[in-house]
Structure formats: C-alpha cells, structure tokens
Amino acid sequence: MSEKLKISIKNLNVFYAEKQALFDINLNIMEREVTSLIGPSGCGKSTLLKCLNRMNDLIDICTMDGQVMIDGANINTPDQDPVLLRSKVGMVFQKPNPFPKSIYDNVAYGPRLHGMAQSKDELDSMVIKSLTRAGLYDEVKNRLFEAGTGLSGGQQQRLCIARALAVNPEIILMDEPCSALDPIATAKIEELIEELKRKYTIVIVTHSMQQAARVSDRTAYMHMGELIESGFTKNIFSNPQHQKTQDYITGRIG
C-alpha cells in the first residue's frame, strides 16, 4: 500500500434539478488501493462514483459545486476534456454491457478510438494483454472473433473489465460489478480486483458488506447523500466510530 493521494474530493455537492443528492462530501482516495463505497440504496454512492469520470455531465439536470482533484488537478474546470478524463478513468457497470461486436473488437474498441496502436500486431498484443489481465484470455482465446454477447454473465463482466483495461487507465471505477453475477463469477471478479490493485487505483460501489470487507483497503460509508465515515476497512468493520455505520454493518439499516 502506498500512501500517495490519487483522488481528492473537497466539499462536493451534487444536485439533480432541485433535489440535492450529495451533501458536502470530503474524501481522499489513495493510489493503488481499493476503496469501497457502501451504504443503503439511494445514499448517493453511484452518484459520487460518476462524479469521478464526469458521467454526470450526460444528465442535463445534474449540477454540482465543490472540487474533484485527480493527481492534484481539478477535473471539472472548463479546460479539462471529459473525453481525455474518461480514457484515464475507466468504468465497469452494474450490468455487463459488452458491445454488439466480437470479443476482439470489444477489447480493441478503446485502443482504436484513441489511436493507441500503430500496427495490427501491436493492437493484437494489446487485446491479448488486456484479456489476460482480466483473467479471460484462456477461456476465449479460441473464439476471439465470436460475439462478446455470447459469453456467460461473469465472462461478459470480465470482458468489460478487459475493455476498460485496454486503454491503460490509472483509475478503475466499478459500479456494483458483481450484483448481476452468481457467487462463482463473483469470486473470480474479486480475485481479479486483488490482482488489479497492484497497478490501478480502484473505487468500487457495492451492496455487499462482505465484498467490501474482502476486497477493499479502505471503506467509506454513506447515508442519505452524506459521507458518514471513512477509513481503513478493518477499522470500519471492527470498530465503527459512528452509530449509523454501526447500525448498517450490523444489519439494522439497509
């Protein structure tokens, strides 16, 4: 675990039209660690996650104030390009969403988009590297040119992770990546997260406290749009400072 600050959120408020979704969030996320965001449904975890790659920009009625700093630079200033930001901050969604293309084309999507490969061979090696990192290559190496949508749910989700890895992001956001998967596929994804944090900073939203406890180094507990408590996962789960956190992790809220 390094102690280098990667993302710093300062006094962040987010509104959907008149309704305030996040209240004065302050949170630091460290490089090459897994930070999990937990809390009951509707507490704003996913909203906070989407602030980190500006996916909230796509929602017309969404407005915000405060700062989100990545590597010391505010990502919301007008001179920051959301397209560049999103190639640096990858995202994996709740439901696996492979494109209606072949497995190969799914992974090659980002590199082609950003012109990362100079030759066909280079692109091939990028695809293979990403699939290998996502722990999927051995399962699909004989059918790279078949449709990505033909894979099982867990494989599809790992394909989406491979797709995100292919553009060499520094940060990977995961929005409940296992909620549509069975326990075996979930276990594989969790192993993968362990593996990936050596190279990437990972922020994961999860409904499962066990999952947060298993995979994350730090945990932030949110409730009704407010950040209640954050810190090392083992401290949050063994010795929560706040009554609401205590209630949630012992199953009294949620």
Binding site: V83, R86, N97, F99, K101, L113, C160, A164
Partner: peptide
C-alpha cells in the same frame, strides 16, 4: 439500443459521434 451500451462507450472516452458510429448504429 440499451442506454448501458451508450454509457459504456462514453465511459471509454468515446465522443457521442464515435459512440453512434461504433456502437449505436451496429446495434
């Protein structure tokens, strides 16, 4: 076309026109 595909492409750093060409039209 499911909005999850559109979001997925935009989250990869694609512009709306790239998303339309590469994902929405094929789908």
């Amino acid at each position: 076309v499911p909005s999850s595909l559109k979001e997925g492409s935009l989250a990869m750093g694609a512009t709306v026109s790239e998303t339309t060409k590469q994902v929405i039209i094929p789908a």
